[in-house]
Structures are given as C-alpha cells and as structure tokens.
Design a protein around this nucleic acid. Structure first.
Lengths: 206, 206
DNA sequence: TGATTGAACACTTTTGAAAGCATTCACGTT
DNA sequence: AACGTGAATGCTTTCAAAAGTGTTCAATCA
C-alpha cells in the first residue's frame, strides 16, 4: 500500500469529510465546529465520532487528500516522456515549489490547516516526507538504469536532496520572496548539484 | 564599515544595554519592562528614550551583539591556517549549525529573542544574511586565488550555498532532529556540492 | 543648554467569569 | 446488532473590566 493512500471511506464518512472540507476551506479549522459539520450532514454530533476518532482526524484526512493530489501531480510531471533524469529532478522540485507557493497564496486556509496538522501530527509529516523521498528514489533509480547517474545509496541521496531544497518548500520564505527569484535560485542550486552528480558519474565510470 | 558593527555607544547607553541584556537573558523580552531596566540603571523610564528610540531597538542592539560574536567566530574558524577552500566551506556551515543549535538548547531566551527581532525587523535579517554571505564570498575568493575553485559569480554562489544549507540553520529542525544526524546530512550535502565545484573547476580548466 | 524626571496618555496584557466547544455515553430507533 | 441521538461533561475560547506597560512631554535640574 502506498503511504499516501487514504483508507477507503464508506459513504457516511465520505459525506462528513466533504462537508468538513468545505467549511475548512472557507472558514478554517478553528472556525468550523463539529455541530456545523453534523448539521451539514443531517446528523448529530455524537454520530461523527462513529466515523472519525476526533475533529483533528477529520482535518488530517482532509490534508491527506490534498497531499495525495500533490504527490500524484509530482509523479505525473516527473514521468512525462522525454525527460532525462536531471530534468526530472529539476522538474520535481520546481513543481513542488510551485504547488506550495500557489497553495499558500491562493488557498491560505488550506495552507494554514496543513501547517497546523503537520505541527500536531509529527508522524504524518514524516510519513509525507517519506512518500516524497520514494518518488525521488524512483527518479534516481531510473537514472541508474539509463546510466545518467551513478548513485550508491538512493534513499540517502534522496534525503540529502530534500535537505538541499528545504528552503524552497519551507513556508518561512513565502513572506519575503518573489516567486521568480526563488525559481532562479532553485535552478542555480540544481545546476550545482547536478554537476556534483556528473562529477561522481565521471569518476565512477573511469 | 562592516555590516555587523554596532554604532559606538556612550557610557549611559552601554549600561542600559547591559542591564537590558541581563533581563532579556533571564526572563525574555516580554517579561522585561522598561521601568525595570530604568530601575537597574538608577534612572527614569523617560530617560531611556534619549538613548534608544524604543524597547525593540534595545533588543535589536542586544541581538546585534550576539550576531556580531557569531560572525566573529565564523571568521575565526574559517581563517585557521592549513584549511583548503572546500574544508573552509564545510567548517563554515558546520560551525554555524553548532552555534545555532547550541544557542537554541542552552540559551533558549536568547534564541527566542533573536527570532522575535528577526521577524519584526526584516531589514536586520537581510543585513545579517548579507554579512554572512560576505564571509562566504571571501572564502570563495580565496579558493579562486589558490586555484581550488573556479567561480564566476561569487555573490550569487554564496547566496545559493546559503539556500542549500538553510535547513541546517533554520529553527524548524531543532525540535525534531538529533544533532549528529543533522551533522551527518550536512556533511553529505557538502560532499555533493563540493563535487559540483570540482566538476566545474575541471571543465573550466580544460 | 543639555540631561533628567515622572505624571499623563494610549495601547496591550491579564483576569476571571460566562459562553462555546469537542467529546462521551446512556438511551432510542431500525 | 448496527446505527443514530442529544443532553451531560469538562475543557477551551471569548469578552469586558482592570491592571500593567511603552511612549511622550511639559516641567525640573545641574
């Protein structure tokens, strides 16, 4: 089972999640009450707890959806035909920057909710990082097969790449930075790192 | 004038800053009042404003001191004899990680105050980043002269390096991470980036 | 005249009581 | 037996009054 999969939801749970999602998006987590969600679903508050252990778990399911879509999108852009492995890595991180940046600016409530959950549920944050690392690993694996890259420890390198591009996917930066400047810097850092891989491949092949 | 220099303070201003520093360190910014500072200096609250425009400016002067010490230390470790340029870069970022990590764990109030000021006074944060970038630039310059490195645009590269190691100097990480793990990852990222430089030097020299 | 004062002002934080909320559970309903 | 209810519970948030604090300034001092 991929880490990003949602446990399948029955119809009632689905309608609860949908109703909650709408309110979360419009009013935010704090301004949404359990009885409002229950009202939207024509049921009582108590019954919500038959389907979700707590309000925070509803929010987690919501964020899990968002994140699922995000990783789907990342997989998609990265698997487009005709991309070399270096281009895939570049596309991966540029797309991630764009996704986070857009969410932050155009859906602030969703962004805020994401942050709250990630702070509260550290294990979810780690799970999410692992899911992304997996995609990066797959890119690296592809690079090895085509001879584009020589990587000893894929998982380790994936982690290092996540570290290296942390600034571009961390929220701190969105208050200050202009998007184009960020993309420019990301590009240059990627150039440097790809040169690093090139160097290693060269010395490995000798 | 180096960017990190404090404007020279007369005796009265000095005693205000010293008294405030002690209270900031023990009780934090919020729990320190202007009349307490004035009391420590045997003067009235009103008189403080002849020497500092506001409470926040006292705090900024305090943080400016801390930061000044930090950059002094960075310059020191980096200018030790017998270090190659790559080793200097590695030492720079490892030392910075250590300094921030230590401050966070052993002087939480000072750390917290730093964060508050940096949030409030964006220009100070930028000034600080520039001051660090300058040190990196100097390292890169040294590398060019000794032929260790071939760098076209030093300032640009310095900025990219700051981006790349952002995770290791951003506070977010200190809640989760074990120090040794962080150092390990920093080392690996530095290896990769130095390989990138090596690649460029090689192709440049050809 | 330059340095200092402390009362006055406006703004923020604290306080604690009232209201609101997430969660539970004993009790229907199907 | 599975599904659903809504009042009861204990915790959290809200809100207005009170206390506290940063800042100013007319008056005082050296």
């Amino acid at each position: 089972m991929p880490l990003t999969a949602l446990p399948p939801l029955d119809e009632t749970a689905r309608s609860i999640l949908d109703a909650a999602s709408k309110r979360f998006l419009h009013y935010g987590y704090g301004k949404t009450t359990m009885s409002e969600i229950a009202g939207d679903c024509n049921m009582s508050t108590g019954n919500l707890y038959r389907y979700f252990p707590s309000k925070l778990d509803i929010a987690e399911a919501f964020v899990r959806q968002l994140r699922g879509e995000q990783i789907l999108r990342l997989r998609e852009v990265v698997s487009r035909p005709g991309l070399s492995t270096p281009e895939k890595l570049r596309t991966f991180f540029k797309t991630k920057l764009k996704l986070v940046y857009d969410r932050f600016h155009s859906r602030p409530k969703a962004y805020e909710l994401s942050q709250e959950i990630l702070k509260e549920r550290l294990s979810f944050a780690e799970e999410w990082e692992s899911a992304e690392a997996l995609v990066i690993c797959e890119i690296l694996e592809g690079g090895e097969m085509t001879g584009d890259l020589a990587i000893c420890n894929r998982a380790r390198v994936a982690r290092i790449l996540q570290d290296a591009f942390f600034r571009f996917t961390s929220s701190a930066v969105y208050y200050e930075g202009d998007y184009d400047v960020l993309v420019g810097e990301l590009d240059e850092l990627m150039d440097l790192i790809l040169d690093g891989f090139a160097y290693r491949t060269y010395h490995h092949n000798q």
